[in-house]
Design a protein around this nucleic acid. Structure first.
Lengths: 133, 133
DNA sequence: TCTTGACCTTCCAGCTACTGGAACCCCTAT
DNA sequence: ATAGGGGTTCCAGTAGCTGGAAGGTCAAGA
């Protein structure tokens, strides 16, 4: 199967698939004309990678997960550890973003948004840190 | 004021301050020895940038916000438009992350995480898309 | 006076995970 | 023969820094 067909099958851009080969996530065979020739196994791996990436797992996490996926004697604990670590990162990011959203949306709400120059958003950004020392 | 002092005052790494100069966000004066000489105004701008970046505003948004901050005849509507656009992006990202978190945490919860190979996480990642066509 | 150490400078490379584009090859259909 | 729609490699660029090398500057201490 050519790269275009693999791309259609997996929903990944051809560019991304070439990149995954370049960094050693997959090793598709080659035809005599130099074209990549993807097996069903390759397509499965690509789909696996696509789904893992959709969870925002890093490429290195994906590499580990793929290795575990291919190792039938894996321990689910190893998989869980990676997933839990990632979940923790997601939670940390969610906390950050929620805090930003809270502050920013209250600033946006109190800004008149008209032609006048007064703006609580700029006031906040420019605020001197209150130094209690 | 040397870059180190400016860094201490603003909480930004010296490297970042140099980078901000390089991309034209600030233009500190220079001493005769070539050292950057930061004015109070420079420090205020850096603090402004630091706070804006802490809200995850892009550098280009920061550039626009800083320009508006310095323009006393600005319209608050221009500021609000930028902030609202950014808020929308934050909301979109929050929705994505919440969805990831929901799915991933339920997978993590159902994974035994022991020495056995069975793993619902890997099963999900490897799942064939159900094709209803 | 010399040296040490903490500053400062510029420049270049690297990080993540791709993406775009140029220059070129291959294959099929007309 | 040619046109098109594949494919190939390689290089550069994205965002926002960060690390490191090689070297200049300055104040304090022996």
């Amino acid at each position: 199967m050519n790269i275009g067909a693999a791309a259609r099958r997996t929903g990944l851009p051809s560019k991304t698939i070439r990149y995954y080969e370049e960094i050693g996530l997959i090793r598709p065979a080659r035809d005599s004309n130099g074209y990549r020739d993807f097996s069903e196994t390759d397509v499965h791996k690509l789909a696996f990678l696509g789904r893992a990436r959709s969870f925002d797992f890093s490429i290195e996490d994906c590499r580990s997960l793929l290795a575990l996926y291919e190792d039938s004697s894996r321990a689910s604990g190893d998989v869980k550890r990676i997933a839990q670590g990632h979940l923790d990162r997601i939670d940390a990011r969610l906390a950050e973003l929620n805090e930003m959203r809270r502050t920013l949306s209250s600033l946006v709400d109190t800004c008149a948004g008209d032609g006048r120059p007064d703006c609580p958003i700029l006031q906040d950004l420019a605020a001197e840190e209150t130094d209690l020392s």
